[in-house]
């Protein structure tokens, strides 16, 4: 009944390296599951290599084209070299989110350390790609054109702060959505159980149950949407890195 219990990390295989605890936990297991599901989807389903695809191959192709179009539209043709990264991020987050919606499972993306690590991967990629493709010209990202000299220092400071806050907002958005959604689901699910155990009050137990069903639908939308938002933000940040003179 404790809505927080579902976020507990439990060690499955204790492991210590250099005095640090890197045990294989339930979180690790679900990450492995997510990778296996994505591999199943994108490698095994595509195995027939049919000219006229079946349902499963078609699914993989639709996902591929969806992300490819997203990267192409948001980051341009030159952004396509980051397509595997965006694709991996999107699929990893999407599958972790959806697997987490199954009762009794663990949601990998409900832990801030996971989302901040993913966001920092994007942040580091943006900085490295920015300097690699544009050199020092990348710093023009912080100097918008057409701004009067008098307010330029203020604008540059704002630009730098907004740039540095990107990984924070990107990671907290995903983490908070997952966390809040799962807590809400658990609370309403708990209401059903409490009402059923409270004698006559059991009569109104369908109400929170209905709410749980509706919330489940909403959470499915959120699970997809947050993966999408994370991926599209990644594309936009990469676009900044590749074409800094906005």
């Amino acid at each position: 009944m404790d809505p927080i219990h579902q976020f507990n990390i439990s060690k499955l295989i204790p492991l210590q390296v250099f005095g640090r605890d890197i045990s294989f936990t339930n979180s690790s297991a679900y990450m492995v599951v997510a990778v296996l599901i994505v591999a199943l989807l994108m490698i095994v389903f595509v195995n027939p290599r049919a000219m006229v695809p079946g349902r499963l191959q078609s699914l993989a192709e639709i996902i591929y084209e969806f992300i490819a179009n997203m990267v192409r539209e948001a980051a341009g043709e030159s952004g396509m070299k980051f397509f595997p990264l965006v694709f991996s991020l999107f699929m990893f987050i999407l599958i972790c989110n959806f697997v987490g919606l199954i009762p009794y499972t663990f949601t990998v993306t409900s832990h801030i350390i996971i989302t901040i690590t993913l966001a920092l991967i994007v942040f580091a990629t943006v900085i490295i790609a920015g300097f690699a493709t544009n050199g020092l010209h990348f710093l023009h990202l912080f100097v918008p054109s057409g701004v009067p000299k008098a307010v330029l220092p203020v604008v540059v400071a704002i630009e730098i702060i907004s740039f540095l806050s990107r990984p924070v907002s990107q990671s907290i958005r995903l983490f908070a959505n997952m966390l809040a959604g799962h807590i809400t689901l658990k609370v309403f699910g708990g209401f059903v159980v409490m009402l059923l155990g409270a004698g006559g009050w059991a009569a109104i137990s369908p109400l929170p149950f209905l709410m749980t069903v509706c919330l489940m639908a909403l959470e499915m939308l959120v699970a997809f949407l947050q993966a999408y938002v994370f991926a599209i933000l990644t594309c936009m940040y990469l676009n900044d890195a590749l074409h800094p003179g906005h």
């Binding site: 605890d21 990778v35 991996s88 991967i121």
Partner: peptide, 19 residues
């Protein structure tokens, strides 16, 4: 630490498989 390590391993494997 455990989550970062396992994320790096699994996400790295996923990236490799995908790319």
């Amino acid at each position: 630490a455990s989550q970062i390590v396992w994320l790096a391993l699994t996400f790295g494997a996923l990236y490799f498989l995908m790319s």
